[in-house]
Amino acid sequence: MSRSKETKILRDEFCGTLDRLDLAIYIAWSDTLTRYRRSALGPFWLVLGTLISVGGLSLVWGALFEVELETFIPSVCIGLVVWYLLSGTLIEGASGFYAQRTLLLNIHVSSLFVSTTLLFRQLVNFWHNFVVIVIVIVIFPQNFKIEVFPIFFVGLFLVSVCLLGVIHLVGYLGARFRDLSPLISAVVQPLFFITPVLFRPDQLGTAEFVAALNPLTHLLRVIRDPLMGEIPPVSTWLVVVGLTVVSCTLASLMTISKRQRLAYWVN
């Protein structure tokens, strides 16, 4: 493929997304509205679920491990909410394009736009769940430091960009290989147990490398640590920035070489 054709594909994709950001927000917003309409609590059912999980886990694991509750409960709570964001994007990303096939087959639409709407939907969920975090921090404010808090937004932003790349990439792969979606669902579950959601990386002792090698650990930490009054270590930032660059680069390369196939894949 000629260079000019490659840049044209990328330009169309980016312009087609930036141009329609208002539509992406509208779709994410109306999607949230319909969920409120179907049940009075709407997405807060999700929040209720999170709340129950946090409460139950805190009681049981708190008793099992004999940890300080004022550190343990916020840590588990923030960890779970971030985990839902990470696992949700991974699982939904794989079927993202296929789920929007009528759109892709009937309207000339940027594939990045489709990925962006998926990310926005996940972020809406995240902010709903954030209510649980606020509640827990109000009850256990010991670790929270207001001067560290702004770093949370930097972390969330970086993770969002990284996830956009991931959604886009697995979206393409999942459109071509339909069994990728169930495969990812199956893998995400065990990943939960080696990702420091229910524990802190430093509790692992000599096995800490397991957490360090797991990219999800670092994505989790740049969001969780600032809410726990800690600044994430430089190595974690480096890994997250690296992951973001890699996921976005791979997603761009995938788009350049396969954008023109996508319509046939989801057909």
Binding site: S30, D31, T34, R37, R38, T102, L103, L105, N106, I107, H108
Partner: peptide, 16 residues
């Protein structure tokens, strides 16, 4: 500027 009418219901959301 190109506009298309292919499948009529394309892009509709049933819940809306």
């Amino acid at each position: 500027r190109v506009s298309t009418i292919f499948e009529l219901a394309a892009g509709m959301d049933n819940e809306l």
